[in-house]
Design a protein around this nucleic acid. Structure first.
Lengths: 147, 147
DNA sequence: CTGAGTGCAAACGCTTTGCAGACAG
DNA sequence: CTGTCTGCAAAGCGTTTGCACTCAG
């Protein structure tokens, strides 16, 4: 599990903020939906179960968790997408490359390797220190490319 | 020069559309501002000289030129950015990689090379056919990284 | 002439904000 | 208790759209 209700309270409190049921619900839902969720989708789900929770609360919560480093945001194709930070299998928040399929729309993560070499090349050729950790690449996934 | 008034008329007419002064002005302005212009910036400039030209006209013109392949759009950091297609020195519309500096905000182009190898790697490792031609990479440029 | 293109103004979707009340600590 | 957080409603932002009029062809 990415978070237990336990650590969560600790982390939130340590930051001098409060842990409200809304925040728990929002984080839990995001967690259970699996990475790469639209605000719209997340809100729909949250609001479906707890109609009292407002859209603005979702935005504020995502923002809040973002600052705590529990949730990371990405802009893909003009749409804001959120995911639990460290959803990349390994616990380290190192690699975070998004492979966005233009065909089916699915988003995958890719491990570092090639990216590092790639970044090194850019560094050498352009003196450009690429922030490879938040790279989004569009293309076609194996399935969509195959047929 | 990327376009002469002459070809422009030809290209536009060939597509079965009309070449209006507004469109010329908008394209010229975009051209003269150099790549990577915000709609806001472009409109401001255009409207500064020709107050009668409306925002919606700018949007429509950009869209129109986009379909003609004369202008290309990119979404960088949530902001829509436009540029004259083929602004990459060479006339071919091949390489179109954006190196966005998180420090100074400037956007550079980078030639293909490394990207191709990189794409091949992704293909092999993930079966993911990366559309490397529209890749945007964030990082720090030589200047911002240096100091 | 005629339809593509324009300006205007209004609608749009997504996100943010101001405020009074609610509740975690 | 106190200050953070919530819900509500309204505003904001960049973009799109419907309309009657205009003008390039």
């Amino acid at each position: 599990m990415t978070h237990t209700t336990h650590d969560l309270a600790a982390v939130v409190h340590r930051s001098g903020h409060k842990l409200t049921p809304q925040r728990q619900i929002i984080l839990d839902t995001l967690c259970e939906m699996g990475g790469h969720v639209t605000v719209a989708a997340l809100y729909e789900r949250v609001h479906g179960r707890y109609p009292a929770i407002d859209r603005s609360t979702v935005y504020r919560a995502l923002d809040f968790f973002g600052e705590l480093g529990l949730v990371s945001a990405a802009t893909i194709g003009g749409a804001a997408v959120y995911e639990i930070a460290g959803a990349t299998a390994a616990g380290d928040d190192a690699a975070h490359h998004h492979l966005v399929c233009l065909g089916c729309g699915h988003i995958d993560h890719a491990p570092g390797e090639a990216f590092v070499a790639f970044a090194a090349h850019l560094q050498a050729a352009h003196g450009f220190a690429a922030d490879v950790s938040r790279l989004t690449i569009e293309g076609l996934c194996r399935e969509c490319n195959g047929e």
